[in-house]
Design a binder for these strands. Structure first.
Length: 523
RNA sequence: GGGUCGUUAGCUCAGUCGGUAGAGCAACGGGCUUUUAACCCGUGGGCCCUGGGUUCGAGCCCCAGACGACCCA
């Protein structure tokens, strides 16, 4: 896109979200532009033939034990490349600190160590932020720092804007999200979160592959967005002239695969929910879902514990600190039923756990919360119990805790409990007051599933926009026979938040959704 | 949706009682051949988020709005 607003050239982000006026850097970028022009005049700009021999971290690792004297004798030839992060000019010599994907390394350049005139380029052509390639020999400075003594230094790519401040880095939250490349460039802590995230995802794959699960991809665009209580995004397919919905969950497709005979499947992918933004919610977020035939809710729970134990170990985060509280992710997880948890946290008597009046009274003590948690059409005992749970218990579940015995009304895809029809064989795992995982024995009786869908439809008719939609094709798949199955969904973003100790989902998403800058719609 | 706080130089931040804008880093010029957030001397740089209002005068007070952060629902 890009375009012109008044007389002010803009480089619009793809959505016009991040507008940088040409004047934004004042004369700072003019100097850089002038250097680019000088570089162009010389020819051979933006080359792609520089090859490096080592990453910075490799050099630090391999030469850690090598003394100043030993290095001076050995003359280890290297070529390195990266972004200039620091520069210390000292007349006829200078030090640069460059950074590549692995680490930083110092460069030492002196007039008499480079080809004729080459030293002047460091001042005349290069700036902080530029990408350079350096050839030279390894040395140690008087202070002992491992350094590349340059025999040549070449500009590979120009940075036309000034970098954020070298010491404090980039702090402004909004800019960190809107210009993530700057955040990543400047903030190691931010890079670490996303490295951790990748490790979590790869750890999950390893876990399931070791257990003979098949990784699959199911539709993002669905004719019926079902499988979760959430509002979908709507789109339209032109050729077929039909509405399509971005999925709110992959669940019903994954279970179709189990019907088809893939007895163990998992998917790690995006879900989309048309809801507000908060420190815990982004419209698109990443879920793990897995399904295992001939497993019950108890086995799914055990598998979930094993998974989190393994990920915590794999990422070296067996213990995490959350809001000052120590959480041990390597210990056994607590478990209690929902009615037990609600009674414990609200003082409700156990005999009244399914008594609508008593539940309403208890909820009523949070009067403002009532309409939100349990609107008029949504006040069966099970729904009220669930509303109480969400309002009064959930935030207090800091240490890993499984809650079991969910009311049937709020669990339209879960198998009913054999002894107590009002609850289902379902659990959710809470850590740090947040829901991390949700699993159950799958409802595989097609007739009961259709009934549950119809109950949801009735609720939708009564005004509940989040009620689950009927997926008739899914019911038909169930009619072919879904084996007894257990399954689970786990929020990857929240797990990464937990492991990395950040408190907002935006810090674990590379490009979180933000309101357009300036309040307008992107062009 | 409600409340609180924030938005000042490219970045990180000060800004007194309402009296016309400051520092460090970055930039530019000069000095400096082992520095390391290099240092020393000098220079330039502002839509004080936007729009109204009060006032002789607003970065500062009032109103509305935008965006962000945090809390509540």
């Amino acid at each position: 896109m890009g375009g012109v607003v008044g007389d002010c050239p803009v480089s619009a982000g793809r959505d016009g979200l991040f507008i940088v006026s040409a004047h934004a850097d004042n004369d700072l970028s003019d100097h850089r532009r002038a250097k680019l022009a000088a570089w162009r005049a010389r020819g051979g700009v933006y080359p792609n033939d520089f090859r490096r021999s080592h990453l910075a971290a490799e050099l630090h690792e391999r030469l850690a034990e090598r003394s100043k004297e030993a290095l001076a004798k050995d003359e280890v030839q290297v070529s390195v490349a990266g972004r200039i992060m620091l520069r210390r000019m000292m007349g006829k010599a200078c030090f640069l600190t460059i950074e590549d994907v692995s680490a930083r390394i110092q460069i030492y350049a002196r007039v008499d160590g480079l080809e004729q005139g080459a030293y002047d380029d460091i001042e005349g052509l290069m700036d902080l932020g530029d990408i350079v390639g350096v050839c030279g020999v390894m040395m140690r400075t008087m202070r002992g720092e491992l350094t590349v003594q340059a025999s040549s230094i070449e500009l590979l790519s120009k940075c036309l804007h000034p970098l954020p401040e070298k010491f404090h880095g980039l702090v402004d939250q909004e800019t960190r999200y809107r210009a993530r490349y700057l955040d990543l460039m400047m903030n190691e802590a931010s890079r670490d979160v996303f490295k951790l995230r990748a490790k979590v995802v790869s750890g999950i794959r390893t876990f399931f592959e070791a257990r003979d699960f098949l990784e699959v991809e199911t539709p993002m665009m669905q004719p019926v967005a079902s499988g979760a209580a959430a509002r979908p995004f709507t789109t339209h397919h032109n050729a077929l002239d039909m509405p399509l919905y971005l999925r709110v969950a992959p669940e019903l497709y994954l279970k179709r695969l189990v019907v088809g005979g893939f007895e163990r499947v998992f998917e790690i992918n995006r879900n989309f929910r048309n809801e507000g933004l908060s420190t815990r919610h982004n419209p698109e977020f990443t879920m793990l879902e897995f399904y295992q035939a001939y497993a019950s809710v108890d086995e799914v729970m055990a598998l979930t514990t094993a998974l989190i134990h393994q990920i915590a170990a794999h990422t070296g985060r067996r213990r995490v600190t959350l809001d000052g509280a120590q959480i041990d992710l390597s210990a056994d997880f607590d478990a209690m039923s929902m009615e037990e948890a609600v009674c414990k946290h609200t003082g409700l008597s156990r005999d009244d756990a399914w008594n609508t009046d008593a539940l309403l009274r208890t909820l009523g003590s949070e009067a403002p919360a009532l309409e939100e948690a349990a609107p008029a059409g949504k006040r069966s005992a099970g729904e009220l119990l669930f509303a109480l749970f969400e309002a009064r218990v959930e935030p207090n579940l800091l240490t890993p805790t499984y809650i079991t015995g969910y009311p049937s009304e709020v669990s339209p895809l879960s198998r009913a409990n054999d002894d107590r029809p009002e609850i289902v064989d379902r659990f959710e795992l809470f850590i740090g007051g947040r829901e991390i995982a949700n699993g159950f024995s799958e409802l595989n009786d097609p007739d009961e599933q259709l009934e549950r869908f119809r109950a949801q439809e009735a609720r939708r008719a009564a005004g509940d926009a989040e009620a689950m939609r009927i997926d008739h094709d899914y019911v038909r798949a169930l009619e072919y026979g879904l084996p007894p199955t257990g399954g689970q969904g786990l929020g990857i973003d929240r797990l990464v938040m937990l492991l990395s100790g950040v408190s907002t989902i935006r810090d674990v998403l590379l490009f979180p959704l933000l309101k357009p800058e300036g309040g307008g719609h992107g062009e």
